[in-house]
């Protein structure tokens, strides 16, 4: 015959059972890791040690925890059996029967996507810096790779005018002149003209100015800018019928590279 356990031993044992069951429940571990039969026998053997009603409460708590584990075991078997009936042939048949949207719906019903917030971390910055350092330089003269010096300062309108950087008050006249010139050249060329043939000028400064004017003409509907996809060539076509009607559907960025476009030192 087994010796009657002491009260403290009985309490420790019951608490261990409660703790074990709670861990399995809270952390989703395999509930069959708990030997329910053995634990129930242990609880039975502790019965003679309980004296006060509070001790019996602990016994009841241990019993309730074990019953919860049995419930989890039932669920565990149910889930596994459900996956077991999913044999490859059934899956193939069902996939053949269902449409793409239905299969997508099957996934969405079972999917609980991760929620995350992306931030720039020191690690990512290091990766970016390392990538930048490894980038091979473009095949341009070394001076072209030097970053332009950015200067922020306030200058008077007179200084800007003296440098030839202002378009003065005759912006509209300049725009009209450009349009007339473009229309004439396009007419000669059969209705449309190559963007670069029109924009390219003696000096880089003039090229930039013409490109600037053309961008306004295109924005306000005076000309249409199209891309010949076969030749990769940009074309300009005067469209006086839509003149003055701004086009806001899309914008095109055309880089002006001094070395590619050409032009003098200016």
């Amino acid at each position: 015959m087994k010796e009657k356990p002491s009260l403290s031993e009985a309490r420790d044992r019951a608490l261990r059972i409660v703790h074990l069951c709670r861990e399995v429940e809270a952390k989703g571990f395999n509930p069959f890791e708990v030997d329910v039969k053995e634990e129930l026998e242990a609880l039975r053997s502790l019965l003679p040690a309980w004296v006060k009603p509070s001790d019996l409460t602990l016994d009841g708590e241990a019993l309730r925890s074990l019953s919860k584990v049995v419930e989890l075991q039932d669920e565990w078997v149910r889930v596994r059996s459900k996956l077991r009936i999913l044999d490859p042939e059934t899956v193939k048949t069902r996939i053949a029967e269902l449409t793409i949207p239905q299969l997508a719906e099957v996934f969405l019903k079972a999917w609980k996507p991760t929620v995350k917030i992306e931030v720039l971390t020191l690690e990512r910055l290091k990766e970016a810096a390392s990538y930048w350092v490894r980038l091979k330089p473009r095949s341009l003269p070394p001076e072209a790779l030097e970053a332009p010096r950015m200067v922020e300062a306030e200058v008077s309108p007179e200084t800007v005018k003296a440098l030839g950087l202002t378009l003065s008050g005759d912006f509209r006249r300049l725009l009209e002149e450009t349009f007339q010139k473009l229309s004439a050249e396009a007419e000669k060329a059969g209705g449309e003209i190559s963007y670069w043939d029109f924009v390219r000028a003696e000096t880089f400064r003039e090229t930039v100015l013409k490109a600037y004017m053309v961008s306004f003409l295109a924005t306000y509907g005076y000309v249409q800018l199209t891309l010949d996809r076969l030749k990769g060539e940009l074309k300009l076509k005067p469209t006086p019928e839509t003149a003055g009607k701004p086009k806001g559907e899309y914008s095109v960025a055309i880089p002006l590279d001094k070395f590619m476009v050409g032009g003098g030192e200016e």
């Binding site: 459900k82 996956l83 999913l86 899956v91 069902r94 719906e105 099957v106 019903k109 079972a110």
Partner: peptide, 9 residues
């Protein structure tokens, strides 16, 4: 995966 299997069937 259990819900996926059930839904597929």
């Amino acid at each position: 995966l259990e819900a996926l299997a059930e839904s597929l069937l």
